[in-house]
C-alpha cells in the first residue's frame, strides 16, 4: 500500500475546472516526478495535499487514513511538507523564526508565566539543520531577506526537513538556481530517498526529472494522462504525454537538446 494516495481529486475555481478526477500515489522512499504544461493543475494538486485548497471531490489518504478533514498545520504535523516555488519565507524574520514558524517550542518564563518561545533552542536546532545541509550562512540571526537566493532556498529546505517529514513536495526547486546549486538539490533528493522519505518533484526541467525520479506522473488539462516508470520511459514518451501527442518529435528533440 502506498504511503500517500490521491484518488479522483476534482477542483474548480468558479467556472474553471482545474482538476478532473486526478490520481496519483507515492511510496516511502520513492521519488515521483509530477510534470505537465502550465495550467495542467500541478500546483493546485499539491496545494490540495498540503491543505491550502480544499478538493471539491475525491480523497487523500496517508497510511490508508483520510487526511481531508485536517487543516494545513495538522497535515504538517503528520509529516507532509512542501517547499514552495516562491519559498514562502517571512523575509524580515531571522532563520530560526522561519524554520520554526507555526511550530515554535515553548517554555515558561521564570517558571511561572507560560507561553514563552524558546528562542535559544530554536537557534541551536536551526544552526544544526543548516550545518547538516552543508550550507554556509554568514549568521543565522539575520533577516532571511538579507541572504542570497540560494541561501534562502536552503532555509526553505531546512524548514521542510527539521520536523522529520514523511512526504516532501518540491515545487520547481531548481528553476531559479545556478548549475552547481541544481546538482546539490538533486543530490539532496537522492539523500531523502535513501532515508525513506517520499518525494514529489514538480519541475519543467525534464532532464532533472528523468535523472532523479522513480516514476513520472503526467497531468494534462487536470487529468492524470500517464503514469510512467522512469527506467522504462524516454524523453519522447514524457513529452508526448505532456503535449498530448501532437508535434512530439520536435518538442522532444528540443527538450533533449536543452
Amino acid at each position: 500500500m502506498s504511503l500517500l494516495v490521491l484518488s479522483n481529486i476534482s477542483k474548480s475555481f468558479g467556472p474553471v475546472n482545474v482538476l478532473h478526477h486526478a490520481n496519483m500515489s507515492v511510496d516511502a522512499g520513492e521519488v515521483v516526478g509530477l510534470v505537465g504544461d502550465n495550467g495542467a493543475g500541478k500546483s493546485t494538486l499539491m496545494k490540495i495535499i498540503t491543505g491550502i485548497y480544499k478538493a471539491d471531490a475525491g480523497d487523500i489518504t496517508l497510511d490508508g487514513q483520510s487526511i481531508l478533514h485536517l487543516d494545513p498545520g495538522e497535515r504538517r504535523a503528520m509529516g507532509i511538507e512542501m517547499i514552495y516555488q516562491d519559498l514562502a519565507l517571512a523575509k524580515q524574520q531571522d532563520v530560526a523564526s522561519n524554520i520554526f514558524l507555526g511550530r515554535e517550542p515553548v517554555k515558561s518564563f521564570l517558571g511561572i508565566i507560560p507561553g514563552m518561545v524558546d528562542k535559544r533552542t530554536m537557534d541551536r536546532k536551526a544552526q544544526e539543520m543548516i550545518d547538516r545541509l552543508g550550507a554556509n550562512l554568514p549568521a543565522i540571526n539575520r533577516p532571511v531577506g538579507t541572504f542570497s537566493g540560494g541561501q534562502q532556498q536552503t532555509i526553505a529546505i531546512a524548514r521542510a526537513l527539521t520536523f522529520d517529514p514523511r512526504v516532501v513536495i518540491m515545487d520547481e526547486p531548481t528553476a531559479a538556481l545556478a548549475v552547481r546549486e541544481v546538482q546539490s538539490v538533486l543530490d539532496l533528493i537522492r539523500q531523502l530517498k535513501k532515508q525513506g522519505i517520499a518525494v514529489i518533484l514538480i519541475s519543467h526541467r525534464l532532464n532533472d526529472v528523468l535523472s532523479v525520479t522513480d516514476r513520472i506522473v503526467v497531468l494534462r488539462h487536470g487529468r492524470t494522462e500517464a503514469n510512467l516508470t522512469t527506467s522504462q520511459t524516454t524523453m519522447t514518451k514524457v513529452v508526448s504525454a505532456i503535449v498530448g501527442g501532437d508535434d512530439m518529435e520536435a518538442a522532444a528533440a528540443h527538450e533533449s537538446a536543452g
Binding site: 498540503t50 495538522e74 497535515r75 504538517r76 512542501m82 514552495y84 514562502a88 517571512a90 514558524l101 507555526g102
Partner: peptide
C-alpha cells in the same frame, strides 16, 4: 511580513 508564508505554516 508574508501572509502567505504564515498561512502555509498552518
Amino acid at each position: 511580513d508574508n501572509e502567505n508564508a504564515a498561512r502555509t505554516a498552518g
